[in-house]
Design a protein around this nucleic acid. Structure first.
Lengths: 353, 353
DNA sequence: TACGGACTTGATAACGTTAACTGATAATTC
DNA sequence: GAATTATCAGTTAACGTTATCAAGTCCGTA
C-alpha cells in the first residue's frame, strides 16, 4: 500500500571546508581553526586560508556545527499574533538582543491556538534551539514544554505566566495597572464603570480583571464584567444594549488592545462622544492613540523593555547552563511597571500628545 | 599570544534514533522509516517503534537531517522593521504559508541598514535555508545575495524590486495607486497638492513619486516634492512653513505609513482641520485610519495577499529546484493592485468605516 | 646535547540521520 | 512450479564540522 517514493537527487550546495582546505593547501582542521579562532595558526597560513575562503565564498555549514555542538545558535520565540503591535514590538526587541549574541530568532505565531502552539514547540525542539521565549496560550504548561525542560533547554515565559515547568518569567503589573486606571475613572466621579474583554482564561486578562474588581470594591461600586466579547459586532451589540438602559454606564474600561479598538469602532458607529457620553480607558497603549477622534487614555505597557528583559534573562540562563558547575537555580522573575497615559477620553483635557 | 580556550563539556541532548531503535529492538533504519513514512513497515513493528518513540519522547534531530539533505526546512524572511504593521502582516502571512509546508520561518529585521541586512543574510546562508524572502533595503543586489543565487537558493523580493540577481518579485501597483490618489485630490479641485516622503532611494517611494508626478503633470499642475523628511519634528516644521505661505497648499499626499503619521501629528499640533484647511491622502492604510479625528483616506495595500503570494512563489521555486529536470526559469513577477479607500480626509464625506 | 616547553599542523573519530544496497519471506502470476 | 513482484528489515556509507590526540618545528636553558 505505501508507495516507495521516487529518489530525489541533488548536488551543489556551496563550497565546504574541504574545498577551502584543498584550495589553500592545508588540512581541514587548519581551516576550522582559522574560522573559529582562538587557536595557534601562523599568520602566513591564516592569510592563505582567508584568501581561499574569500575566493570560494565559503560559509560554514551551521547544521554540521550544530550536530557536533548539540545545540543551535538559535532561540525560539512563540507569540500569539505578530499583527498585534504589542507582540511585534516584543519580537523586535528579542531579535535585537539575540543579534548581539550572534544568535538568530525563530519566530512563530501560535494564532491563539493551543494545538499549533504545541506543534511549533515540537518543530523548534527538533531544530535543537538553545532556548525558548514564549507567550503561553494557557497557564498550564504544555507537554512539549515539559519535554524541553527535561532536555535542559532554558525557558522564559513572556507577558504571561507559565505553571508546571521551571521557567523564567517577565511580566508587567497587570493588576496594578488596571486598578490605577479604574481608580482614575472613579475619581472622575463615575459610578457605573463597566469592563469588557476577551478571553478571561488568558493570564493577562485574568490579572487585569482582578485589578478592576479591586478598584471597584474599594470604591464600594458593583463590578460589571463582560468577557468573551470577541468580535467587533458583539462589542457594538453589547454597548448598544447597555447604553439604552435607564441608568446607563458612564465609563468603560477595556481589557486589551483588540477589545479597545472594537469598542472605539462601536463608539464611532453609535456616534457617542468621548468622554461626554462615555469615558474610556484601554489597557495597552498604541502609537495612534493620541490622534484619535478623542485621544485615548491608556495603560502603557513597556513592550520593548519587556522583550529586552526576557531575552537578556534567557541568554543569561543559556550561558549559565553551559558552565556546568554553576547551575544555581536562581528564582527568575521580573515584573515591569505600567504607566497610565492621561489623554482626553477619560475626562482629563490636558495632554495633546 | 592566542590563548587556547578551555574545553567545554556537554552531555544529554535528548534521545536519539539509536536509543529508540534499542528500546524497540529494531535497526535504526526501521525507526527512520517509521518516522518518515512512505516505506514498507509492518504494522506490528510500526506500533512497537511508535510506542518506543513516545516512551522516550524522541524528536528527530533536524541538524542531522539537514546535514544529509543539504537544505534546512526553513525559509528566511528579511524585513526592514517588524513594528511597522504592514511588514508585520506580511510576516504573518509568510509564516502561515510556510507552516502548511512544514517549514519554519527565520525572521530578521534589517532595521533599514544595508550592513545588518548583509550580515543577516550571511547568517541565514550558514543555516542553509531553503529559500529567502526579502524586502531589500537597496535596489542593487547585495554581494551576499549573489552568493545565495550561486548556491541556487531560491530568492523572492517582496514589496520592493531587486536588480542584479535572478529573483522572483511580488510588488504592488505603487505608481498606479499614487496616481489614482493624487488624481482624486485634483478632482476635488485642489491645485497645489504637495507630496512629502521619506527615503526616495527606496523602490516603493520612488515609484509612488512617479505616480504623483504623472497625475500632477496630467492636470497641468506643478509637482512639489519634499523627500528625506525623516522625523516628526521635521515634518511639522516643513508643514508650518508651507502653510504660512500666501498661496498655501490645500492638499497633501504622504508617501508611506511613517510619514503619514508624522503628518497627522503635525496637523493636530497645528490645529488644522482636515479636510477644510488641508485635504490629505496617505499611501498605506491602517486599522485605525477610520477612527482618527478625521477618518483618513488612504491607498490600501494588500499586505496579507502580498506575503502569501510571495511565500507561495518561493515554495514553488523550491519545489521546482528539487525536481532536477524542470528548471524552466519562468519569469516570476506578480503585481498586486492597490485600492483607494475613500474616507473623510480627502473631502469626501460618505463612508464612516 | 639533550630536554621541556611554546608554537604549528595534521589525522582520525565522532555527532544523528538517511540513501542505497543487500537479503530475506510471502504472495501472485503465467 | 518457476519466475516475478511485493513486503519487510538490516548494513554500510556518507553529509560537514569540530575535539582529541599525535607529531612535528623552533626555541632557550640546564
Amino acid at each position: 500500500m505505501p508507495p516507495p517514493r521516487k529518489a530525489t537527487k541533488r548536488r551543489h550546495s556551496g563550497p565546504t571546508i574541504t574545498d577551502v582546505a584543498r584550495e589553500a593547501g592545508v588540512a581541514i582542521m587548519t581551516v576550522s581553526r582559522v574560522v573559529n579562532g582562538g587557536s595557534y595558526v601562523s599568520p602566513a597560513t591564516e592569510k592563505r586560508v582567508k584568501a581561499a575562503i574569500r575566493r570560494l565564498g565559503y560559509t560554514p555549514n551551521e547544521a554540521a556545527r550544530m550536530l557536533k555542538g548539540q545545540r543551535a545558535r538559535m532561540i525560539g520565540l512563540v507569540v500569539p499574533d505578530l499583527a498585534d503591535s504589542f507582540f511585534a514590538t516584543c519580537a523586535n526587541a528579542v531579535q535585537q538582543v539575540a543579534g548581539t549574541h550572534g544568535y538568530m530568532t525563530l519566530i512563530v505565531t501560535s494564532e491563539r491556538s493551543v494545538e499549533t502552539e504545541s506543534n511549533e514547540i515540537a518543530m523548534m525542539a527538533a531544530r535543537r534551539i538553545a532556548g525558548l521565549l514564549i507567550v503561553p496560550s494557557r497557564v498550564g504548561a504544555d507537554k512539549r514544554l515539559r519535554e524541553l525542560e527535561q532536555a535542559e533547554i532554558p525557558l522564559v515565559a513572556l507577558d504571561r505566566t507559565l505553571d508546571g515547568v521551571d521557567a523564567g518569567q517577565v511580566i508587567v503589573e497587570n493588576a496594578g495597572g488596571a486598578e490605577e486606571a479604574v481608580r482614575h475613572l472613579v475619581a472622575h466621579g463615575h459610578r457605573r464603570v463597566i469592563c469588557i474583554g476577551y478571553d478571561a482564561k488568558v493570564y493577562t486578562i485574568h490579572e487585569r480583571i482582578l485589578g478592576y474588581r479591586r478598584a471597584m470594591k474599594e470604591a464600594g461600586l458593583k463590578p460589571e464584567l463582560w468577557t468573551n466579547v470577541t468580535t467587533a459586532a458583539a462589542t457594538e451589540g453589547l454597548l448598544r444594549r447597555l447604553m439604552n438602559e435607564p441608568d446607563r454606564p458612564t465609563a468603560l474600561f477595556t481589557l486589551n488592545n483588540v477589545t479597545t479598538i472594537h469598542a472605539l469602532q462601536a463608539v464611532r458607529a453609535m456616534q457617542l462622544r468621548l468622554p461626554a457620553d462615555l469615558a474610556m480607558i484601554g489597557f495597552d497603549d498604541f502609537e495612534l492613540a493620541p490622534l484619535l477622534d478623542t485621544p485615548l487614555t491608556a495603560v502603557r505597557q513597556p513592550a520593548l523593555e519587556l522583550g529586552r528583559s526576557a531575552a537578556r534573562m534567557l541568554f543569561d540562563m543559556i550561558r549559565r547552563s553551559r558552565d556546568v558547575g554553576t547551575d544555581t537555580k536562581a528564582e527568575r522573575r521580573i515584573v515591569l511597571p505600567t504607566e497610565l497615559i492621561l489623554r482626553a477620553s477619560c475626562g482629563c483635557n490636558n495632554h495633546s500628545s
